[in-house]
Nucleic acid binder design. Structure first.
Length: 538
RNA sequence: GUCCCCGUAGCUCAAUUGGAUAGAGUGUUUGGCUUCGAACCAAAAGGUUGGGGGUUCGAGUCCCUCCGGGGACGCCA
């Protein structure tokens, strides 16, 4: 149980009827942890004053109409002080907790006994699916796709760390009935100019393939070229270290008659109607602004229908409890109708979680550069990683919230890659390796010897790790983790600058060596989740 | 026209989801290596959180309004 959770429990014993936030204050003089519970209690008592007050509010601790400061002062008398050296009421009612050193020393012992499993949660029974990238099989994976790629990859690992059973999906839009596949088929014969780059990227080196494809019907040729393109994209992902459990092919939904099945399901529920030669779904009854077409007047299913079949499969056949979908900003408009349709299918709407990543704009010398697939002018994901490096690229994308509208200047990225904070973190790791290589440990460590400010700060920072995992598994805000990695590295560098590990005092050496060993374990786990390497030397 | 996202230090971004004196990196200026790795540490400077109003013990965060940037509004995917 993390220190924060233990404080939460202690607080719950003193004030059972309220959920308070326990946070790590920005300023050290505000304690190791702090809570705003008194503000909440004071408000509760205030609002209870007018009407008929429910009995036992706040355990009868706070007087009606008492100020938050008075409430806090009353409350701390009832808080079990087992964990704390000191409890302060500060400001207008914050309660600040100062931990006993002994508690921190125990935490260090706990980290060293658990090692790689520190902060890991026991297996949960909830099954989760994370879909990301899902780049169309009509060209290389672009930088725009890259943002979601790293995010999804890291999110899967955090969720696993938190104990969820997680699978990752990549949806391949390769249906023969789909417009883009058919247009790809025509492009092979030079009858469509939507994909002018396919000749140089995929066909030039394989004249036999080109010849074969040209003889096939358009649909089939497009489908087969899509497979070739997709295979290349799979290789790119492998090279960059992004693992996908399931590449789900849209065409399989047709082969397995899953699309028909959903269509029938909707018509059985009398949710469809005919209009202008097309079949419409009454999404407007479930929160959408207007109804949407399921089957075009040509008889071909729309993207909405196939995507619904895919998600029906995720929820019902593959039995995922939570389905996360990382989407580009250009897809946000589809969420409303998709949600509406899921509701119509009686799938709980909260179990579908779209995460929208905002657009990446490409800049060159301060001016926007439009990337156009049509003209073959685009920087691919692979190009970028090749120039900037995997670790730096990952960190660059992961440290930012998905909501950020990013401006990406590849020249600047190349130029600044050596200043990427990822190296600061990796350098800390390499320094630790160096210490651990050289410092011999003569025996059992006495953690009580660790009482310097920087030593305790390091333990406190490590103790936050389980909470970082838990919080991220709850709100999916992955960018919290690079920040934490940076802070942990900083706490280490700060310690390193002021104190020596290797020294004559063998007892202190042993204790400090143990501290560094623990720090390295926690830092490695953090970097693993991000998909960043932990170098011994650099 | 309707809807969604964003606007925070010169630049790139945070801010524990409504908490305390808005923080980091980078850039600028300055100081620190005969001891475990200086890809480090420390200090200074840098802000009317786009503007205005409101809600409350408390607002960068919530509401209204205006300004600016991006995106979506297909029988494309």
């Amino acid at each position: 149980m993390s220190l924060r959770t233990r404080i939460q429990k202690t607080l719950k014993d003193a004030a059972p009827n309220i959920d308070a936030v326990i946070e790590v204050p920005q300023r050290p003089e505000h304690g190791d942890y702090a809570t705003n519970i008194a503000f909440l209690l004071a408000r509760q008592n205030f609002s209870a004053e007018g009407g008929s007050a429910p009995g036992g509010s706040a355990g009868g601790l706070a007087k009606k109409g008492a100020s938050s400061k008075q409430t806090a002062e009353e409350l701390i008398k009832n808080i079990d002080a087992e964990l704390f050296e000191r409890l302060d009421v500060a400001g207008s009612g914050f309660i600040n907790f100062f931990l006993k050193k002994e508690i921190l020393h125990n935490e260090l012992a706990d980290i060293l006994s658990k090692k790689e499993s520190y902060g890991k949660s026991a297996a949960k029974k909830e099954r989760m699916n994370v879909e990301f990238i899902s780049a169309n099989p009509t060209g290389p994976i672009t930088l725009g796709n890259g943002r979601g790629a790293f995010l999804g990859d890291a999110l899967v690992r955090v969720l696993r760390y938190a104990g969820f059973a997680v699978e990752s999906d990549f949806y391949v839009n390769d249906a023969k009935a789909g417009g883009q596949v058919q247009s790809l088929g025509r492009a092979i014969r030079g009858e469509d100019d939507s994909y002018p780059y396919i000749e140089t990227l995929y066909l030039k080196d394989n004249p036999d393939v080109k010849e074969t494809l040209e003889k096939l019907p358009v649909e089939e040729a497009g489908y087969q070229l899509a497979q070739i393109i997709h295979k290349k994209n799979e290789e790119t992902l492998k090279k960059i270290g992004i693992h996908i459990d399931t590449f789900f092919h849209e065409q399989d939904l047709y082969n397995d008659k899953k699309i028909e099945k959903i269509e029938n399901l909707f018509s059985e529920k009398k949710l469809t109607y005919q209009k202008e030669g097309a079949v419409w779904l009454t999404t407007s009854k479930y929160g959408d602004d207007k109804d949407k077409v399921l089957i075009r007047s040509t008889g071909a299913p729309t993207y909405l229908l196939t995507d619904l079949a895919y998600h029906w499969d995720k929820f019902i056949r593959r039995k995922f409890d939570v389905v996360i979908n990382i989407l580009g900003a250009d897809h946000h408009g589809t969420v409303q109708s998709f949600r509406a349709a899921l509701t119509a299918l009686e799938i709980e709407k909260d179990s579908f979680v779209p995460i929208i990543t905002q657009t990446v704009r490409f800049m060159e010398h301060g001016k926007e550069r439009k990337m156009s697939k049509r003209k073959g002018e685009f920087v691919t994901f692979e190009d970028l990683v090749g120039e900037v490096g995997t670790d730096a690229t990952r960190y660059f994308f992961l440290e930012k919230s998905p909501d950020t509208h990013m401006d990406f200047d590849i020249a600047l990225a190349r130029e600044q890659s050596s200043k990427n904070p990822v190296y600061y973190i990796q350098y800390a790791h390499a320094r630790m390796s160096s210490i651990l290589r050289e410092a011999q440990s003569p025996g059992d460590a006495d953690y009580a010897l660790l009482s310097e400010k920087e030593e305790l700060a390091l333990i406190k920072k490590m103790a936050q790790f389980p909470d970082i995992i838990e919080d991220t598994a709850n709100d999916y805000q992955v960018h919290r983790i690079p920040r934490y990695a940076y802070e942990l590295a900083h706490a280490f560098h700060d310690f390193y600058e002021k104190h020596r590990v290797i020294q004559e005092n063998k007892k202190l050496l042993t204790a400090r060596r143990a501290l560094i060993e623990a720090t390295q374990v926690v830092l490695q786990q953090t970097l693993n989740i991000l998909g960043v390497t932990s170098p011994e030397k650099m």
